[in-house]
Write a protein that binds this DNA or RNA. Structure first.
Length: 632
RNA sequence: GCGCGCGUAGCUCAGUUGGAUAGAGCGUUGGCCUCCGGAGCCAAAGGUCGCAGGUUCGACUCCUGCCGCGCGCACCA
């Protein structure tokens, strides 16, 4: 379904093309090109502008600005981009008149001047001035303060209708069993978890899926290894021992080719349901999951579906039959493959030994997810090294005639390097996730214990976990997904400047002020009170800067969802924390500027604004998968 | 070789989908508190946005070609 002639360039992740316009998972392989974007209309969802993507006004103030220009210039409000002027002195909201002026055969500056000249103040807007081709609007501050504070306190700042009736599947984390969760697993885990929170906050139904790597020849190696060298797995068996066994097997395989056959044999027995193979595999899987779960608990992650590759075993014959029936699969060099137009390498369905492969199981999994969830988008948060796999996978689904193949998206992220080298279990270059968390937590513990001497030790420990792990999570979300990151302890546990703890600190400061003020009302009660308050008492520019920032929250989150890029939220929260800190610091030299000032009415609205910041910061941190401590 | 991605301050990164004088943090230098929490705030210095063309009113952003770095290229997942 098209919407309002609003087109966009497909970026690296968003690719909602019409069926068969491009069956590949990612919109632009080859050179990026301009295409028309089509928003798929989910079943049972009526056309409604709230369901549309893209830059659009999410607040009544921005909406009013857009309508003003739209009616004066005879263009659709939806086609106008409302942005922030580069400097706050210029105004609160800016609209460029380029396109509208062209349609009217006027110069943008002339049109802007005309619009500004005919402007009349309204409920939301106080003034409009033309600066070159831009019309810069100033908000009616008291009304804007009241609106944003109320919305923030009642958790209505985010457009929750955006995802109504739509489902997003998110495949993330998805580690292989019998290997420790190492630092390079964290990006998929943390990005995916954040995306789940983001989509959910926008009203989507989300399905977080942990597609465990629990099937394949690898597991034949483990069984074979355990049989050959039982002493390698002393009780109690843990994941580290299983990982070491796997490493050993691979190493010995290099010199002893028979081991490869042996592993294949064991996997073959596993596939055929051999009782001994099955029992050993199940045990390794249970041991692995128990350990994974402790890490997920630390991160506050629960999955809607933990369904490993093994779960699709029964679906394999059906997949193979479908591909054969549609004439897509053929034998090549002893293996069963699907050849793809424009691709040099085919997609492999079966080895020459007849065992199924990663891709076969992914085909079945994709199919399962479609029939089970009828998703609007099905996301795979997997490192960029697997881009080819997903491109081929989605292409094969498209060739098989599944129109929903175009709803599948690979959400790639860059490599994690360690000492400049690629990390990975196979390369043996790993740092364990639980160790990183433990170290980060230890790092912050003394400072919290010192700052919060009144807290009982267990609460200090809990806060330290929240802050330490939060630092690690934030460090992994703050850069664009596709950039490679080099792991360094300093960066990951950084506490100053642009860091997770800085955000949590500003949240704790808000909480501290509210505590000190004896603020006991719930957010909802406070919002009800906002109706009666005099927001014109908030007269300082530093206070307005905070409120102006809050108004940006909905668009930031919507954009993060569209592009599957949580990092915009990180930077937004840093800006919000900065605005709050500047306001806060203004009170250092001047007691009348403090939240807890003498004037009763002023204090009341300042507390209200502080509560709104606290609520938004907590909400934002939640979207990143981080905790928001009240004291630290 | 082919494909994909990245290249912005000394370092690590943003840059509102083509708009106004390219912004933060770290580091460096210098300031701010008898302070509602200094994990803070302010200021200075620091830039040929890899290079060269092109598209147009306008390019860090789009196109072409180079250069550099990384990753991926059939029976692993």
């Amino acid at each position: 379904m098209w919407y309002h002639g609003q087109f966009a360039t497909v970026n690296s992740t968003a690719q909602n093309q019409a069926p068969f316009a491009c069956v590949y998972g990612r919109g632009d392989f080859g050179r990026p090109r301009r295409v028309f974007r089509v928003v798929p209309q989910p079943a049972g969802h009526t056309a409604d502008e709230s369901a549309l993507w893209g830059p659009m006004p999410y607040t009544p103030i921005a909406s009013a600005a857009a309508s003003t220009v739209a009616s004066a210039a005879a263009v659709a409000a939806q086609d106008l981009k409302v942005e922030a002027p580069p400097k706050a002195e210029l105004g609160d909201f800016a609209i460029g008149c380029f396109a509208a002026a062209k349609a009217q055969r006027k110069s943008p500056a002339v049109l802007a001047a005309e619009i500004a000249a005919s402007f009349a103040p309204s409920q939301w807007l106080a003034s409009a001035t033309a600066t070159g081709p831009f019309v810069n609007f100033r908000a009616a501050r008291p009304a804007a303060f009241r609106w944003v504070v109320t919305a923030a306190l009642t958790d209505q700042l985010l457009p929750r209708a955006l995802g109504a009736g739509q489902t997003i599947c998110i495949d993330y984390s998805s580690p292989n069993i019998s290997k420790s969760l190492a630092y390079h697993h964290i990006r998929s885990t943390v990005i995916g978890h954040s995306l789940v929170q983001i989509f959910r906050a926008l009203g989507y139904r989300t399905v977080g899926i942990n597609h465990l790597g629990d099937w394949g020849t690898t597991h034949g190696m483990l069984i074979a290894g355990a049989k050959l060298w039982p002493e390698a797995l002393p009780e109690p068996v843990d994941v580290a021992a299983l990982g070491a066994l796997y490493q050993r097997y691979r190493k010995e395989m290099e010199t002893d080719p028979k081991l490869e056959d042996l592993a294949r044999q064991w996997f073959g027995r596993l596939e055929r349901g051999d009782a001994e193979a099955r029992a050993m595999w199940q045990r390794f899987r249970d041991i692995s999951w128990a350990e994974f779960e402790t890490v997920y608990q630390q991160l506050g992650i629960t999955f809607d579906e933990v369904r490993g590759e093994s779960a699709y075993e029964a679906a394999m014959p059906g997949v193979l039959e479908e591909m054969a029936q549609k004439g897509l699969s053929k034998e090549s060099e002893g293996a069963l493959v699907i050849e793809l137009p424009g691709e040099k390498a085919p997609l492999l369905l079966k080895t020459k030994d007849g065992t199924t492969l990663y891709a076969t199981r992914d085909l079945a999994a994709a199919q399962y997810r479609w029939t089970t969830y009828h998703f609007t988008r099905s996301l795979y948060v997997v490192d960029r090294g697997q881009a080819l796999h997903f491109r081929q996978l989605f292409a094969a689904l498209g060739l098989a005639g599944h129109e929903w193949a175009s709803r599948c998206e690979h959400v790639p992220f860059g490599l994690v390097r360690l000492g400049g080298k690629k990390t990975g279990t196979r390369a043996g270059n790993v740092v364990l996730l639980k160790e990183v968390f433990a170290d980060a937590t230890d790092d912050v513990t003394p400072r919290i214990a010192e700052n919060q001497a009144q807290l009982p030790p267990e609460q200090v420990a809990e806060t330290a976990r929240m802050v330490g792990i939060g630092a690690v999570v934030f460090a992994n979300l703050v850069t664009q997904r596709e950039k490679d990151v080099d792991f360094t302890w300093e960066k990951v546990v950084s506490l100053d400047g642009d860091s997770g703890p800085y955000l949590q600190y500003s949240h704790a400061r808000c909480a501290s002020i509210l505590r000190k003020a004896g603020w006991t009302s719930s957010n909802v009660e406070a919002a009800a009170e906002a109706e009666q308050l005099d927001f014109s008492r908030l007269a300082h520019d530093a206070e307005w800067a905070v409120a102006r920032r809050l108004l940006d929250f909905p668009e930031i989150v919507a954009r993060a969802a569209q592009s599957c890029e949580p990092h915009g939220i990180c930077h937004y929260l840093l800006d919000l924390a900065g605005d709050f800190s500047r306001w806060y610091t203004a009170g250092n030299g001047d007691a009348t500027l403090r939240v807890l000032c003498d004037d009763e009415d002023t204090r009341r609205v300042r507390l209200m604004l502080t509560a709104a910041v606290r609520a938004t910061m907590a909400r934002g941190l939640g979207l990143l998968g981080m905790g928001a401590p009240d004291a630290m």
